[in-house]
Amino acid sequence: MAIGRVLQRARLDAGLGIDDISTATRVRIPIVQAIEQGDFSRCGGDVYAKGHIKTLARAVGLDPRPLLERYDAEYGTSESLTPASPLFEAERIRPERRGPNWTAAMVAAIVAVIGFVGFTLFQGNDPAGDSGTQAAEGANPAESKPTPTPHHSAPPAAPKPAPSDSAIAAAPRDKVTVMINAAQSRSWVSAKDHNGQVIFDGTLQKGEKKTFQDSDKIDLIVGNVSSVELFVNGKKIDNQFKPGQVGRLSYTKGDPEVG
Rank of each mutant, 00 (worst) to 15 (best):
A2T: 15
A2M: 12
I3R: 01
L7E: 05
L7P: 13
Q8C: 10
R9E: 10
R11C: 11
R11I: 11
L12G: 09
A14T: 00
A14K: 06
I18F: 14
I18H: 04
D19Y: 07
S22C: 13
R26N: 10
P30S: 14
V32G: 10
Q33N: 10
I35S: 07
I35Q: 00
E36W: 06
E36P: 10
Q37V: 09
G38A: 09
F40Q: 02
F40C: 04
R42Q: 08
G45E: 03
D46R: 01
Y48H: 09
K50A: 13
I53D: 06
T55S: 15
T55E: 11
L56Y: 06
L56N: 03
R58V: 14
G61Y: 01
G61I: 04
L62I: 08
D63H: 08
L67N: 06
L67Q: 00
L68M: 09
E69W: 04
R70K: 10
R70V: 07
Y71Q: 01
Y71E: 00
D72Y: 00
D72Q: 04
E74N: 11
Y75I: 06
G76Q: 02
E79I: 05
L81R: 10
F88E: 11
A90G: 15
E91F: 08
R92N: 07
I93K: 07
R94I: 12
E96A: 10
G99P: 00
T103A: 12
M106N: 05
M106H: 05
A109C: 09
A112P: 01
V113W: 06
I114A: 15
F116N: 06
F116V: 14
G118K: 00
F122T: 12
Q123H: 12
Q123M: 13
G124R: 14
N125Y: 10
D126S: 13
G129N: 04
G129P: 09
S131V: 11
S131P: 04
Q134M: 12
Q134L: 14
Q134W: 08
A142K: 13
S144M: 13
K145Y: 07
K145C: 15
T149W: 03
A154F: 02
A158L: 13
P161A: 10
A162T: 11
S166A: 15
A167C: 07
I168H: 09
I168A: 12
I168N: 11
A169F: 13
A171I: 08
P172Y: 04
P172F: 09
I180T: 00
A182Y: 00
A182L: 02
S187D: 00
A191G: 00
G196W: 07
G196D: 07
Q197V: 14
V198I: 15
I199W: 03
D201I: 04
D201W: 01
T203F: 05
T203K: 01
Q205G: 12
K206E: 01
G207M: 05
G207E: 03
G207Y: 02
E208I: 02
T211G: 08
T211V: 15
T211Y: 02
S215L: 11
D216K: 15
K217R: 09
I218F: 09
I221T: 15
V222M: 04
S227Q: 09
N239V: 02
N239W: 00
N239P: 01
Q240I: 06
F241H: 01
V246C: 08
G247V: 02
Y251I: 13
T252C: 09
K253C: 14
K253H: 06
P256T: 07
G259W: 05
